[in-house]
Each structure stands twice: as structure tokens, then as C-alpha cells.
């Protein structure tokens, strides 16, 4: 699905140069749930930004289904292929739950009625029934908000879902719930999930756990 080939990234400031990601090669496959772990400053967020095409690698290349991601239009890439989930949900505060979920589909030329049915189904599988549709984000708990955000990311049918510390603002029970949702999405709906987390409990639910340290991928986690 997504392949990284010798990807490096450096933040280049005036007098400083931070090599945040150093020559990483790996492959994210369809229908798998990946957890990305590592100490603070190890380059996890940077790697996610690379996968999301928010920054371009200073070296190496990233391929989406064999095609270099530079060949995609960045907006389209995020809209159709690789969705993003944020730590603090980032729901649009002036739209209700259903409108929030439907928002990305409005950027696509797809049938509104169909999108609506999809969105309602998506919310349903995440445990949010019709009583939630008209609620504003401010009237939801953190866990509920994150589930809405996941439904929103799923709604455009993007095959890859990336999440940078999606449970960072949630309690452990909600976090577990989110992780099980991810696991379900990977196995039942054949999505590729890439999640950054600090929580080993969360990582346990993933199919594959990748460890990062000083911008490098550790092959042997015991090296940590």
C-alpha cells in the first residue's frame, strides 16, 4: 500500500539542522494495523507528516501503490487516499455530528444521498446512533468526538488512515475502544491503519508495532 524507500527528513533552520528521520525503509500493507512507538523526539510525528505528504522527504521516496506520492495532488491525496486523524479531533465546532462527517465528501464529486447513507452507517458501526446526528461537537465526550473524527476520515473511502496520538487526550478505557475500532477497520474493512502511540496497551492491539529511535527504525525492540 505505502512504501518508504530510504526516507530521510531534516528540519533546516537558520543555523540548525535537525535530522528527524534517518533513512527509513518500510512497507505498510493493506488490511494491517500498524502502531508506531518511540520516545519523545524520535521522529514519529515527522514520519506521519511524510506519509501524509505534508512535508517532502529530503532524501528517498514514498510510494503509494507503487506511485511516488509527489505525483498526486496533495489535497486529493489526503482526501481520497490517506486520511488524517488528529490528537484533538479537530471537528468543525459549528457543524453538527452528521455535517462534520459529511464535510470531506462535499469536497468530492459524489452523490449526496449515497454519502449520507454511508456516513450514517459509518457512525452506526462506531456506536453513534441517530440521536447523535444533530449534536454539536461541544456536546460530546472526548471519546465520542474521536469516533466522529474517525467516521469522518472513513467517509471518503480512503484506504489508509493515519493517526498521530489519537488517544492522547482520552482516558484508557476510551483509548482501548478506539484501538479496537482501528483493529476492526483493518481486519473487517481492509483499511491500512498507521497509528502513533505512547501507550503499550494500545500497541498490543496492533498487528505490527514499529519502534523509532533517533529517527531510525529499530528492527529489534529490545535495543530500546
Amino acid at each position: 500500500m505505502i512504501e518508504l524507500r530510504n526516507v530521510s527528513y531534516s528540519y533546516i533552520g537558520k543555523n540548525v539542522r535537525v535530522d528527524a528521520v534517518k533513512s527509513i525503509s518500510c512497507h505498510f500493507e493493506k488490511g494491517k494495523f500498524y502502531a508506531l512507538m518511540g520516545p519523545s523526539g524520535s521522529g514519529k510525528s515527522t514520519l506521519m507528516q511524510l506519509i501524509n505528504a505534508l512535508v517532502q522527504p529530503t532524501q528517498g521516496s514514498i510510494l503509494y501503490q507503487g506511485k511516488p506520492i509527489e505525483t498526486f495532488r496533495p489535497n486529493e491525496y489526503r482526501l481520497k487516499y490517506v486520511s488524517l486523524i488528529h490528537q484533538n479531533f479537530c471537528l468543525l465546532p459549528f457543524l453538527n455530528v452528521l455535517e462534520n462527517v459529511l464535510y470531506p465528501t462535499s469536497l468530492l464529486k459524489i452523490n449526496k444521498q449515497e454519502a449520507r447513507i454511508q456516513a450514517i452507517k459509518q457512525l452506526e458501526t462506531l456506536g453513534l446512533d441517530a440521536t447523535y446526528h444533530k449534536r454539536m461537537p461541544s456536546m460530546l465526550s472526548g471519546g465520542e468526538q474521536q469516533r466522529v473524527a474517525i467516521a469522518r476520515a472513513m467517509c471518503t473511502g480512503a484506504p489508509v488512515l493515519t493517526a498521530d496520538e489519537p488517544t492522547g487526550n482520552l482516558d484508557s478505557e476510551n483509548a482501548r475502544h478506539i484501538a479496537s475500532i482501528f483493529s476492526h477497520l483493518a481486519h473487517e474493512e481492509k483499511k491500512t491503519i498507521i497509528m502513533v502511540t505512547h501507550d503499550p496497551e494500545m500497541a498490543k492491539q496492533a498487528d505490527i508495532v514499529l519502534h523509532l529511535k533517533d529517527g531510525k527504525l529499530l528492527l529489534n525492540p529490545s535495543d530500546m
Binding site: N75, R78, L79, K80, C90, L92, P104, L107, R152
Partner: peptide, 16 residues
């Protein structure tokens, strides 16, 4: 800012 960054991260162009 937050709202506009959100919609951009979802795939809306900067122009949009």
C-alpha cells in the same frame, strides 16, 4: 486558524 487547518488537513485546498 484551527478550523481552516482542519479542513485543509481533510483535503480542502488552501485556495478553497
Amino acid at each position: 486558524k484551527k478550523e481552516l487547518a482542519s479542513i485543509r488537513s481533510m483535503g480542502a485546498s488552501a485556495f478553497h
